[in-house]
Design a protein around this nucleic acid. Structure first.
Lengths: 147, 147
DNA sequence: CAATATACGACAAATTTTGACGTATATTGA
DNA sequence: TCAATATACGTCAAAATTTGTCGTATATTG
């Protein structure tokens, strides 16, 4: 535990890919930019990241539902960045793809831990949780991917 | 994922307990301190934390092997704090009880990910990992438990 | 309307965590 | 010395979670 899931890793790979494409396109002359197709299909992404199609496809759907990517149906459809990665934090990514952003299960609303009332560490864990979340909110994906 | 394991939670509960005992004992007059028994058995801790004996017993053994607790065999034996919690970081706790402190499986030495050479996000994940670890190293258990 | 692509429900496989049992070792006190 | 108590630790079963697969519905393009 205390690890990122494969899904989040795949997301990072995909986002790095989109980001690289974005950077390339910025080096082009204005006219060429319109010709360049910026959307990439889930299948292409699966190939380039070596991730299983079904899984990364889900990941892309989630990123799309969160407004980080933009999806297009049909032939020549696919995904493209819809946000500047400077404006997306690691916390947002975790929130999108991990089961929850909380550091412990007992902190989630549907907590079934019958001890919660007599638990001695609710407050400590809540405070630590807050610190961790603020930490992840302070790191942008741009920071993470531009190294 | 991205959560603390039950083991780590149990450890926090136990350490809070030890810490509270420590605080109480400091309120006593010097003479009484010698009379007060500061070691607590795994069984007592299991009862007070409502954790399964076998599990918390293992946790205590680990904390003991890391020098955070001190163990005593035999009748009236048990565990007691052997370090000031100001000197123990959250990172140390995670290192002791989680499978690893790394943010991703691909970072561990016995990594079986066959992509590692062509993986596009090794560097980003390594850097993020470093940040997270430094963050956890900056928080002491004293900070966490005294809220 | 055929080809291509996203969207999503359901479920099987794999992995990891959690907890239980049995046994060995060490210490204390009668 | 021996019985009681407590830590130490190997092994393994149960439970939970993650990861990956299949099938099908919906949307867009030419």
């Amino acid at each position: 535990m205390n690890k990122l899931s494969k899904k989040t890793e795949y997301a990072l790979m995909a986002l790095k890919l989109f980001n690289d494409i974005d950077l390339e396109s910025k080096g082009l002359k204005p006219r060429s930019r319109n010709i360049l197709r910026l959307t990439v299909s889930a299948q292409d992404i699966a190939e380039q990241t070596h991730a299983p199609y079904d899984v990364i496809s889900r990941v892309l759907q989630v990123l799309s539902s969160r407004g980080i990517l933009k999806a297009e149906y049909g032939l020549f459809g696919g995904y493209q960045l819809s946000k500047n990665l400077n404006d997306v934090t690691v916390h947002e990514l975790i929130d999108a793809l991990e089961s929850s952003t909380d550091l412990a299960k007992c902190l989630s609303s549907e907590n079934d831990c019958e001890l919660s009332s007599k638990c001695t560490i609710v407050t400590p864990i809540t405070q630590l949780n807050l610190k961790v979340q603020n930490f992840y909110k302070s790191i942008t994906l741009h920071e993470v991917l531009h190294v």
